[in-house]
């Protein structure tokens, strides 16, 4: 940890960690600076140029995301010149954007849309050629609409820096610069969807949740992933009693990162194969019965076996996929209710 230092932001003296960037320091002190390309979990980039600020003693505006704080620094997060530059940048981005918010999945949850709103950009001084890309369908997970890409590079960086894969890179030059796999063909992807989670616009989204509901339609429930033992925190996006999407927050044990199972593997929650009724084997076939019948059958049968052969003729296998509470109750039932220590689970499998 670096020493704490004093800086001034918009006239206010604040005490911050000396190892931070100006952007981090401003955020942590409650100042808002717009940005499209920054994420605290990635290395500073300085690509979108929206976080330009004025710093006393430096003649040009500098990007807050790449500038480390120094003791005594005096920062101005907003002034006429900076707002003019930011406005121009947003306007330039919008001049090369489909601007189809009416039908975009990300409406209401889109940084570019917010910026356009903030700067009131209905007209555009720069209308001109727009990038046009054919839709391509390279995978079952990630939907790409590269016309909406603002080249913030978050997807590229998370793939390389965090995931250690580097499946995509910015290719081509100038206006035609585009994020794509090598030769736009050789996709060496783990489908973790980290890129999707960071995309600030509608350029990357999940095929599974596309068209199923926008930000305002969903209720978000935080829970824990049902797969491996990492214990990643999931945020379930629920609409009409259906989980339509899974995401994760940065301030969690998994830092917001997920794997393909965690991020995309939720469809089983509404699988048509889910058991919907108790079944009892009758004449060799499993048939639907009521809960009353099933519970009565099980308890009586267990009771009679216990009576006839003793409690140790009964065993229980619990589940590593059930909750602590359920596991506790299960072994308590086997131990106290049945009277045997024949209880185990699949820790060994």
């Amino acid at each position: 940890m670096a020493d704490r230092i004093n800086i001034t932001i918009d006239g206010e003296k604040v005490n911050v960690d000396g190892g931070l960037t100006v952007l981090q320091a401003a955020r942590r002190s409650g100042f808002h600076i717009p940005t499209l390309c920054d994420d605290d979990r990635l290395k500073p980039y300085g690509g979108c140029r929206l976080c330009l600020v004025s710093i006393e003693g430096i003649p040009r505006p500098v990007t807050a995301c790449t500038t480390p704080v120094t003791d005594g620094m005096v920062v101005e997060t907003s002034n006429d010149h900076i707002e003019r530059l930011r406005r121009t940048i947003v306007e330039l981005l919008l001049s090369d954007h489909p601007n189809d918010c009416m039908t975009c999945d990300r409406a209401g949850d889109c940084t570019l849309q917010e910026l356009a709103y903030f700067y009131g950009l209905r007209d555009n001084r720069f209308w001109g050629e727009r990038r046009r890309y054919e839709d391509d369908d390279l995978n079952p997970f990630i939907k790409r609409d590269m016309e909406k890409c603002v080249l913030c590079g978050k997807c590229v960086r998370v793939c390389r820096e965090v995931q250690g894969v580097g499946a995509i890179e910015i290719s081509y030059r100038g206006f035609g610069a585009k994020v794509c796999p090598p030769y736009e063909r050789d996709l060496n992807c783990e489908f973790c969807g980290q890129c999707v989670s960071l995309c600030p616009t509608g350029a990357l989204s999940g095929k599974q949740w596309s068209g199923k509901g926008r930000e305002k339609d969903v209720k978000k429930i935080k829970t824990v992933c049902p797969y491996c033992g990492c214990g990643c925190n999931l945020t379930l996006h629920v609409s009409r009693n259906e989980v339509i999407r899974v995401s994760s927050e940065p301030d969690t044990i998994n830092e917001g990162w997920l794997c393909p199972k965690g991020r995309f593997g939720y469809e089983f929650i509404k699988s048509p194969d889910l058991l919907k009724s108790p079944l009892i084997r009758k004449n060799g076939k499993l048939e639907e019965v009521t809960w009353d019948e099933a519970l009565k059958f099980v308890s009586e049968k267990l009771g009679s076996i216990k009576e006839k052969y003793g409690p140790d003729a009964i065993g229980g296998l619990s589940s590593a996929r059930c909750t602590n509470e359920e596991n506790y109750l299960f072994q308590k039932f086997i131990r106290a209710g049945i009277g045997t220590n024949n209880v185990d689970h699949c820790a060994r499998l």
Partner: peptide
């Protein structure tokens, strides 16, 4: 310059294109 812009930053990538247009 537009052709040689690396595409990383918005003003250069899109801005020079608009100047050129």
């Amino acid at each position: 310059t537009q052709r040689e812009s690396c595409g990383k930053c918005t003003p250069c990538r899109v801005g020079t294109k608009r100047l050129l247009e």
